[in-house]
Amino acid sequence: MHPARRLAGPLAMATAAAFFLAGCTSGGPAESGGGGTSAAVTVPPSTGTPEPAAPSASASSGDPAAAGLATFTFPDGRLSFTRPADWKAEVFEASASPYVGTATIYDASDKQLVSIYYGQIADGVSGPVTRTVFESVPVPGLQGRSTPEAHASFYVDWDDDDAIYHLQLTAGAPATGPRDAVKGIILLGDRVLTAEVLFDDQQFPDDKSARAWFAGSQGQALKAILASFTFR
């Protein structure tokens, strides 16, 4: 394994807070502290601002797209995304100023699928890998809002003999070949956004299996979530 390198810069402050928030979302709703501004809100499938969408011609009874879509907006009113209407989102708002919030998306069986961080602090780690990119598409609602422009990307990084698959937002389109592995940090003015699918218990035996999963209903539903982000 190659040693990781920590990135430094004006946004790499309050790192401990960022890792604390990630821990809060991975375990479900977090309780607000005494006298603080923290709040945990669960948005069930039946609430929020629904946006009906017709299912695709290939949708089956088990296809997440068949349930239509619902829109979720962060409490500050600036960042939104869509999800299948029978999935849910939980948001943990740690601070209003500077703004710091996280969200977790769960499927209809209550399995955690997507982790989102949104705020005014950031931290990242890099290290050399060999990358194969399967697909990367621009996020229409974030075009012109960040440089490099945000993409929804599915790829695998090889670190020695270890393969790590990623489906996440990336700053620009990732390229195949030797690269520095950096978590996808999208800069939106004074805000930072990261969003990635959680593959903790679903790494793939090979690239063929990964491609087959991505082409299926769950892979395409998760890609659609990442590609649906808008910011105002």
Results as ranks from 00 to 15, higher is better:
residue 31 E to L: 14
residue 19 F to G: 08
residue 32 S to Q: 13
residue 34 G to E: 15
residue 23 G to W: 03
residue 45 P to I: 04
residue 18 A to W: 00
residue 19 F to E: 12
residue 41 V to W: 00
residue 29 P to D: 08
residue 25 T to F: 03
residue 32 S to T: 08
residue 37 T to R: 04
residue 28 G to V: 09
residue 19 F to V: 14
residue 36 G to C: 04
residue 42 T to W: 05
residue 17 A to K: 09
residue 22 A to R: 07
residue 29 P to L: 15
residue 42 T to C: 07
residue 17 A to R: 14
residue 21 L to F: 05
residue 38 S to C: 07
residue 40 A to G: 15
residue 20 F to S: 14
residue 17 A to S: 14
residue 18 A to P: 00
residue 38 S to R: 05
residue 18 A to T: 06
residue 21 L to W: 00
residue 36 G to K: 02
residue 31 E to H: 10
residue 38 S to F: 08
residue 29 P to V: 09
residue 29 P to S: 12
residue 34 G to C: 08
residue 18 A to K: 01
residue 37 T to G: 13
residue 43 V to G: 02
residue 38 S to T: 09
residue 38 S to E: 14
residue 40 A to E: 07
residue 23 G to E: 14
residue 48 G to D: 00
residue 35 G to A: 09
residue 43 V to I: 09
residue 29 P to E: 09
residue 45 P to Y: 01
residue 29 P to M: 11
residue 48 G to E: 00
residue 33 G to H: 03
residue 47 T to A: 13
residue 38 S to M: 11
residue 47 T to Q: 10
residue 39 A to M: 09
residue 26 S to R: 15
residue 40 A to N: 09
residue 43 V to R: 00
residue 28 G to H: 02
residue 41 V to T: 14
residue 46 S to I: 06
residue 39 A to L: 11
residue 34 G to V: 15
residue 35 G to H: 04
residue 45 P to T: 03
residue 38 S to G: 11
residue 32 S to Y: 05
residue 41 V to G: 01
residue 33 G to T: 06
residue 44 P to M: 06
residue 42 T to F: 05
residue 45 P to M: 02
residue 36 G to S: 14
residue 24 C to V: 10
residue 35 G to R: 04
residue 25 T to R: 02
residue 22 A to D: 15
residue 38 S to L: 09
residue 33 G to I: 03
residue 45 P to K: 00
residue 35 G to K: 03
residue 33 G to A: 07
residue 44 P to W: 01
residue 41 V to H: 01
residue 39 A to T: 12
residue 41 V to Y: 00
residue 48 G to T: 01
residue 43 V to W: 00
residue 22 A to H: 14
residue 44 P to N: 07
residue 18 A to G: 04
residue 22 A to K: 06
residue 36 G to A: 05
residue 37 T to V: 10
residue 31 E to N: 08
residue 46 S to G: 05
